[in-house]
Write a protein that binds this DNA or RNA. Structure first.
Length: 284
DNA sequence: GTACTTGTTGAACG
DNA sequence: TCGTTCAACAAGTA
């Protein structure tokens, strides 16, 4: 499930490889996923990639006047293939499905150097849209602070928690309108790192706990980015890199297993319809 | 066959 | 109006 660190990893890889390459063709295989009209698709052919950026969990391919917006949702996956390398990010790929395109390929972008970007999605939740600079700005404005950005201050987090004081701290963290990019995995991991139980009310946190949480979030995200995210693929790039943060997860997906910080077991409940993991001993 | 998984949207509720 | 909860979407995996 791509969250901020996974999307950041993909963006960094793609920025490096797509920059200044001209988009020479688009093949849409699924109208639900590829949400551009024929005219829009035609309009962007021939435009060079200026940059690849991230906002929240969204990938933005800047083509100058227009921007391709890509959201991977839960099972989206981008695979870039050139003569020199094949790299992928997002949902993990089963080895037997490494043929491209495959039955889950929804869109294919082709570039001037014969390389191609395959957009795959098993469940078809993901999408590709086109946005002008103005539309993109408006979209960005609706999202909360970037947890790795300079606007994510201790004061900002305090204000968020004050506004959402009756909600559980876990649900407050994954609300994209307040903090953007944190999903289920990193919410659980950040709360473990800050030693706070996920079902606590946001308003019940002591000042020192808010501070610990504020420090834990970027720390966990940066560590995850360093290890190229949690749900990375079986593919490797030309340098043989295929890191995964899964080895470093303390609570997510470890229900019933021993806690790594004490003798207790990791517990799991549903909070807001989402699986929530924590250690009852380590977290207060 | 059934339960389970999740990011985002939008409807419903109080 | 506002905050909050919940169903829906989708389909592979256990």
């Amino acid at each position: 499930m791509p969250e901020l660190p996974e999307v950041e990893t993909i963006v960094r890889d793609l920025e490096h490889r797509l920059k200044n390459k001209k988009l020479t063709g688009i093949k849409s295989l699924d109208k639900k996923v590829f949400r551009l009209t024929a005219a829009e698709a035609k309009k962007i052919i021939g435009q060079p990639v200026r940059s690849v950026e991230r906002r929240a969990k969204m990938i933005i391919i800047n083509l100058g006047r227009d921007n391709l917006l890509i959201h991977l949702k839960m099972t989206g996956q981008l695979v870039y293939k050139s003569k020199a390398a094949i790299i992928a990010g997002g949902h993990p790929i089963k080895l037997e499905r490494q043929d491209l395109p495959n039955k889950f390929t929804r869109v294919i972008f082709k570039f001037s150097d014969q390389s191609a970007l395959y957009f795959n999605d098993v469940r078809r939740f993901a999408w590709v849209k086109l946005a002008s600079a103005a539309e993109l700005a408006s979209l960005k404005g609706k999202l909360g602070a970037e947890p790795l950005g300079s606007d994510f201050t201790l004061d900002y987090l305090k204000k968020v928690l004050a506004r959402k004081r009756k909600t559980t701290i876990k649900q407050a963290l994954i609300d994209q309108k307040f903090i953007s990019g944190i999903g289920n995995i990193y919410a659980d991991e950040s709360l473990f790192a800050a030693r706070i139980k996920p079902m606590r009310r946001a308003g019940s946190l002591e000042p020192n706990e808010v501070k610990k949480l504020w420090q834990a979030i970027p720390k966990i995200l940066r560590l995850a980015i360093k290890h190229r995210g949690t749900s990375f693929s079986d593919y490797v790039d030309a340098r043989g890199q295929a890191g995964n943060f899964i080895k470093y997860l303390k609570v997510y997906g470890r229900a019933g297993q021993p806690c790594q910080g004490c003798a207790g077991l990791v517990k799991k409940i549903k909070l807001g319809g989402r699986g929530t993991h924590w250690c009852d001993e380590c977290q207060k």
